[in-house]
Design a binder for these strands. Structure first.
Lengths: 343, 343
DNA sequence: GAAATTTCTGCATACGTATGCAAATTGAAT
DNA sequence: ATTCAATTTGCATACGTATGCAGAAATTTC
């Protein structure tokens, strides 16, 4: 009952042809006559033969494997993206090899080393930074990298993000238009471009409206940290009347604290706005007003960038920013006569 | 700037030794003298050499790749499991190649074919069924399969599940003890062992207590279907006073319908109990009473079963059932004097 | 029907590594 | 120093496939 691998040689033998003929039958675009193809396919069928992708990769230099590096899947945005990425790549005959890393220590570099050992054709990182040394190694190995949902100042790395600065600004305008004047921010991790850009855009928007930020704490994209920040900002008597939380995942924790610990009404007492528009945001229990990151289009851009490099030998480093709309729901006061489409 | 792969031959040349020596240095347990190792490692370091896992697999017959087949990641249980599985396997030097399938059509078999093309060392399926033909092919190819969180009557397939029958029974006892007499069930997909077993256990528990099920609808593990089922069961005047929903993912949709559409109080008007205990269940917005599937232990069992087959050549098909506790929270009435540990 | 062209096929080799075997080296024991 | 065993090393080959090249077959052209 041990493994009985069928090779192209056995198929060739049974079909009475050469091994190369078998190979050609399974290589799209190769030159084979119809009756040869028929003979080979029949023999292959009978033996249950399928080409060995790994052996093939040795020759072609293409593994049809894309490495995906991701830090954690608790934030629903990432499984959602993973599912879409995987489906899109699968449609092109590629598959995703998953590498989990911790964003805190230097495991990224170690893990990325393992990644290259698998001769991946490309790498996608989801909200994970990488060192310059590593970027250089990938470049040297000829492996294209796309940073998904995180930017980094490296001219070798492609990136696809939403327009975080603009998004932050839109949220500021929305809150100000809603009459809020005591506005706080529980920011995304300041070590990430997303966190920094959203905050910068938000601050710029407030400043343009002449409104000052009354409090700002780094939530590190972490539920516990965000909850603690909410307690700190909203426990006093002179509490803010609105808060922009750096992503939906933290916003849920913040809403829970506001409602169930501090007994505040959302949006009656406090308006809450998030960022991402994960599926959960639209569920009635949270019904969160949030800026949508259009994951469909981001995935599309990521895949086409990657395949452009891999299959067409593109060398253009793409820095793609995708705009998303503000999804107006029930967690934040809606300005009088605010048109849904205004932003 | 094209790829410049470094091979063991180049390292050998630079270190002034044979290629086999280089190979041995990178093969744990091979016979090499300290000074040889030193020379080789130095040369390898200078050239940035790392062994090609794919080429290695051609010889050893081991790819160190585990195929994971999963249908959808919206239900938080699966990303959570994926993350844990990936971490556990990574610690053993294995990595996960992801294959998304749709459970509705026959894409499973097609995709599993591709899976075998990658010479995976093992396969984990998460809540996905597979045909007998396919099970036979995996067995013939010597690739062990573990069904994670779903059973199937095939003596070639390992499986790790929670004790769904017992879990269903516990929930019945809990609801009956809480004084409920008009109890309904929004079941998991009847095409899955989990759905069937939970329902069977639940029915058995009710029967033992002499309570009849007042309504039962298949929710197909789908939010929309579950919401529709909730509307159907709870819209009339003579509505049930408790419902067991086949998994947490559907239970959230049901709670949303009860609270926000039908304006019912949970647990005042209706007790809701779920199954899984995903992270979201413990968030205050839902605070769902649910039967925990101990994903940590399930992952552990899955990984050790798989590695037992791969590395120790085990041939024992494992059918592992893991018990989980009822997590008593706020979505269902708690019986008087109910000790947390009783079940 | 012969010649020129196109299409097809087999041979041989390459991809990057691991490993059985025999030769070479080392070290221990006398 | 000599023998013997143990360890280390290199040689050669194998893993399963793709592909350049040259020859064979099929097709077209006149």
């Amino acid at each position: 009952m041990v493994s009985e691998k069928v090779t192209s040689i056995e198929v060739a033998k049974r079909a009475g042809v050469s091994q190369s003929a078998v190979s050609r039958v399974f290589t799209p675009g190769a030159s084979v006559s119809p009756k040869m193809a028929e003979k080979v396919l029949k023999a292959a069928e009978e033996l249950g033969y399928r080409p060995n992708v790994l052996a093939r990769s040795l020759i072609t230099g293409r593994s049809r494997i894309i490495g995906l590096v991701v830090a954690y899947l608790e934030n629903q945005f990432y499984p959602d993206a993973l599912e879409k990425l995987s489906n899109a790549l699968q449609a092109h005959g590629y598959h995703i090899l998953v590498f989990m890393v911790s964003n805190e220590d230097d495991s990224v570099d170690k893990v990325m080393g393992e990644l290259l050992d698998y001769q991946v054709d490309g790498i996608i990182t989801a909200s994970v930074g990488m060192s310059n040394a590593l970027a250089a190694r990938c470049a040297a190995a000829g492996v294209p990298v796309v940073l998904f949902n995180r930017g980094q100042d490296d001219e070798r790395l492609n990136q696809v993000t939403s327009n975080n600065i603009d998004g932050g600004r839109k949220i500021a305008e929305f809150l100000v238009a809603g009459g809020h004047r005591k506005i706080a921010h529980i920011a995304g991790w300041s070590g990430s471009s997303t966190g920094r850009d959203r905050e910068a855009g938000f601050r710029a928007g407030l400043e343009a409206a002449g409104v000052e930020l009354v409090g700002c704490i780094d939530g590190m994209y972490n539920r516990e940290k965000a909850a603690a920040a909410a307690r700190e900002l909203f426990s006093g008597s002179d509490r803010p009347d609105a808060v922009f939380v750096g992503n939906d995942h933290m916003a849920f924790a913040v809403m829970d604290v506001l409602r169930f610990e501090l007994k505040l009404d959302v949006p009656g007492d406090v308006s809450v706005v998030g960022y991402d528009d994960v599926p959960l945001s639209s569920w009635p229990a949270y019904n969160l007003t949030t800026l949508r990151q259009p994951s469909n289009r981001m995935v599309e851009a990521t895949v086409s960038t990657l395949l452009g490099w891999i299959e067409e030998g593109s060398q253009d480093v793409q820095k793609i920013k995708i705009d998303g709309p503000l999804m107006i729901r029930g967690s934040a006061r809606i300005p009088e006569g605010w048109p849904d489409e205004r932003l």
